[in-house]
């Protein structure tokens, strides 16, 4: 059995003055080394959930376990060492006046020794391929570059988990790819477990597991295969389905003899090739 890294039980949270729970009785686990995608319509509680995982908010009810620590006011600072976060707006999370200052910010907070810091800043920037921009100021960087610096800032703290809260939604397609490739590499090298909140269904399709939130509740949890099987049900929740699933469905409706749905274009192409050689 895989090692559980995060475990939520019945987590419920309400903002002051709101009459609806923003997060309502949510339970799920995250295993070490997996990529978990969280999807849901605007206002479904995704960001709130992310904030709960990092102790930026505390649940009104239920419990959150990070590693072997129960998240509480006492453990929150230790939890934050394990859970890094990258937010949506590249500008609003860049604290330092230059790239290296920004990456060092988290290390300074932890009281890391200066020589050690220099090394860890370097390492982190190497990993996101931003090592040539040490002294660059943020307003001279593209959105994708800023987000990679933000990832480096998280990496420098050597956490176990990274949460991306729509970290690519304000970027152009190229910037988005840059950022996702970076995260994918880190996951592959077993450096990080990834929890990615996203509206991009193509990205979610590549995750190991997907959680669908609807109005603060956990609507469905499963592999991309299982989730995208829901097809029209997802559209009803304000979501979409990936292109290859749509195409595969449309082909089947037109009487092309395909078995099951297809999560990636590669699978669909492969099946079509097989079909073609059979005929």
């Amino acid at each position: 059995m895989e090692e559980k890294l995060v475990s939520l039980k019945d987590v419920t949270f309400k903002y002051d003055g709101q009459d609806r729970n923003a997060v309502d009785g949510v339970s799920f686990d995250v295993s070490k080394g997996e990529w978990l995608a969280i999807v849901g319509h605007n206002g479904s509680g995704k960001s709130t959930l992310a904030k709960l995982l990092n102790g930026l908010q505390f649940p009104g009810f239920g419990s959150i376990l990070i590693g072997d620590m129960e998240l509480s006011e006492e453990t929150v600072w230790d939890v934050r060492k394990k859970v890094g976060m990258v937010f949506q707006n590249p500008d609003n999370q860049f604290v330092g006046t230059t790239v290296q200052d920004d990456v060092a910010f988290g290390l300074e907070n932890l009281g890391v020794q200066q020589q050690m810091m220099v090394k860890r800043v370097q390492d982190a920037l190497n990993k996101v391929k931003m090592n040539e921009f040490l002294d660059q100021e943020p307003h001279h960087l593209s959105g994708g570059q800023k987000q990679r610096v933000a990832i480096a800032g998280v990496l420098a703290l050597q956490p176990d988990i990274i949460i991306l809260d729509e970290a690519t939604s304000m970027l152009d397609p190229r910037g988005r790819e840059e950022v996702l490739d970076t995260v994918r590499e880190l996951k592959e090298e077993k450096i990080l477990t990834v929890i990615s909140i996203t509206h991009d269904l193509e990205e979610a399709a590549k995750a190991d597991r997907i959680i669908v939130l609807n109005q603060g509740r956990l609507y469905r949890e499963g592999t991309p295969d299982e989730i995208f099987h829901l097809e029209d049900e997802l559209v009803g929740l304000g979501l979409d389905i990936p292109f290859s699933v749509k195409l595969s469905k449309s082909l089947r409706e037109k009487g092309v003899d395909l078995a099951g749905s297809h999560l990636t274009e590669e699978e669909l192409v492969k099946d079509l090739c097989a079909l073609n050689s059979r005929i």
Partner: peptide, 17 residues
């Protein structure tokens, strides 16, 4: 469009066979 593509794929494959 996806519709158009599905139709074309079907046609192309049938023609190919």
């Amino acid at each position: 469009s996806v519709e158009d593509l599905a139709g074309e794929v079907k046609r192309v494959m049938e023609r190919g066979s």
